[in-house]
Design a protein around this nucleic acid. Structure first.
Lengths: 274, 274
DNA sequence: CGGCGAATTGACGGACGTCAACTGCTGTGG
DNA sequence: CCACAGCAGTTGACGTCCGTCAATTCGCCG
């Protein structure tokens, strides 16, 4: 069920890394921290450390207590869940993204597992420091609230996507979203293994493959991970994308995925990730 | 698609109501407000008003701008969503619950519709006041963050429930949850119309009915809305309830449903409601 | 070249949605 | 007081979507 590409070796073992100034800047640029004072920022990140993990490393299992806020600086991470010998991918994260903020805020056990997909650099921030800062600094507490609100809305979209659409429709909309996020050109690249995208979209790898084949009738060409959408209008007639479900925004964000700028000048990352 | 029991009449029209001291106490008892100072509490609720709506009233449609935080004081409310002529129930709320907090915090449009199921008394609190208070008062901002985190975790549970389990399993777990929430006796009452529960659980009314019939093999007796679980162990063997998906907690809460007390002394309501 | 895992394709079965008919309850109006 | 309309709920028949199992191909890396 779990496949680990990286073979255990000296260089592949997780290890602490030096934190460079450029890394700090990238963290500070996150909506969650961009409004924070220099003092608060240093305070929260005081005991943090950066660590490099090999591909396929389990960072967190379901039910684990959560002691740190994680910030993915480089690489990619899968958030997943399992029950009764089935498992599913809930989100695929890319840099720069925070994750498991909700569990940190409530000091609760994790409801999801987290696993590196590629070799990844991850910043680990003290959960206790996060809670203290959010409880003492009004601006930061509000930023956390906005962050959580954005995550929440991302999940609402995900549930609507799951309950209201069929597999083919979810796939078609996923392709449209990817196209827009990768510049809007006719051709783009699937950002992850198909089996993982299948799981993210709530289907089996077999059905994912068959659905891709079906989309040939709608002008979609597949060559390996390269996707070309020849007749966008035709595909959209099938997909019926909806701004209240799909998140066709700028991107480049946090937690669980992506940034969407609502009218409020802050965060709102949406769940289903790149 | 929409059925409204109440016939329009003088008494059924929505209308403002006087706000009693007892109502204020019930609002203040919510995790979201229980830690607030008297001053802040009065400040936030300054321009609020209580309104009575007949059954079947649409309070909010998907995409509407959200100007108020809603607090359900009496009655019941359905949160739903639709796409492409399909619709689904995302949550069923009972008093005392707040809803659409996330949209209020981000000053964004609603991703869900809200509709009264029964005649309902609803308190409407200025969204602008909520945002201002959360941004100025650290304790309140943190309470909002915790509230949102609890809602988020409720949705994570809901997605896991939806993606990892089949219809029969979702129903079995729903019945187990209801039994516990209604005191744990062998027999209890379905709290809403079966068609609505079916939609909440992501199935058609027909399949809901068939699934209930199937559960007879597992010791479940149905008479109208009365459910008797004769062999809990047998049913659990089918349902395989999981604390990381199901929320078998005290209840009596807010937003989107229910209260679950994590280790942190505050909120955390979970999504799928009573 | 050989091996492994991802991806594809086909065959099959089960779960679920759809359509339709029928039952039972309730509120309405004659 | 009863007949009837309307709707929730149930049940059956049927079709479709989707998951499972198996065989094969493809691409990558050793």
């Amino acid at each position: 069920m779990i496949s680990v590409k990286a073979v255990a070796s000296d260089r592949d073992t997780s290890r602490p890394m030096p934190m460079r100034p450029a890394d700090l800047e990238r963290v500070k640029a996150l909506p969650l921290f961009s409004g924070a004072s220099e003092r608060l920022f240093r305070d929260v990140l005081a005991g943090c450390f950066l660590q490099r993990f090999p591909a396929g490393t389990t960072l967190l299992m379901e039910g684990d207590p959560v002691d740190f806020l994680y910030v993915l600086m480089d690489g990619s991470v899968e958030l997943g869940a399992s029950w009764n010998d089935k498992d599913t991918t809930l989100a695929i994260l890319r840099p720069v993204s925070t994750f498991i903020l909700a569990a940190v805020i409530l000091d609760a056990e994790s409801l999801m597992s987290a696993r590196t997909i590629d070799r990844s650099d991850i910043l680990m921030v003290s959960g206790e420091a996060m809670r203290r800062a959010a409880g003492e600094d009004a601006a930061f507490g509000f930023a956390v609230a906005q962050e959580m609100a954005g995550c929440y809305r991302g999940l609402v979209r995900a549930i609507k996507n799951q309950k209201l659409r069929g597999g083919l429709e979810r796939l078609a909309n996923y392709l449209i979203t990817q196209r827009l996020r990768q510049g809007g050109g006719a051709t783009f690249t699937l950002p992850h293994e198909k089996r993982m995208l299948a799981s993210l979209l709530g289907m089996t790898p077999e059905n994912f493959s068959r659905s891709l084949a079906t989309l040939a009738d709608y002008g979609v060409e597949i060559h390996g991970a390269e996707v070309t959408i020849n007749r966008p209008a035709t595909l959209e007639r099938l997909a019926k994308p909806d701004p209240l479900i799909d998140n066709h925004q700028p991107v480049t964000d946090t937690v669980t995925g992506k940034a969407q700028r609502e009218r409020w000048p802050l965060p709102n990352r949406d769940f289903r990730a790149a």
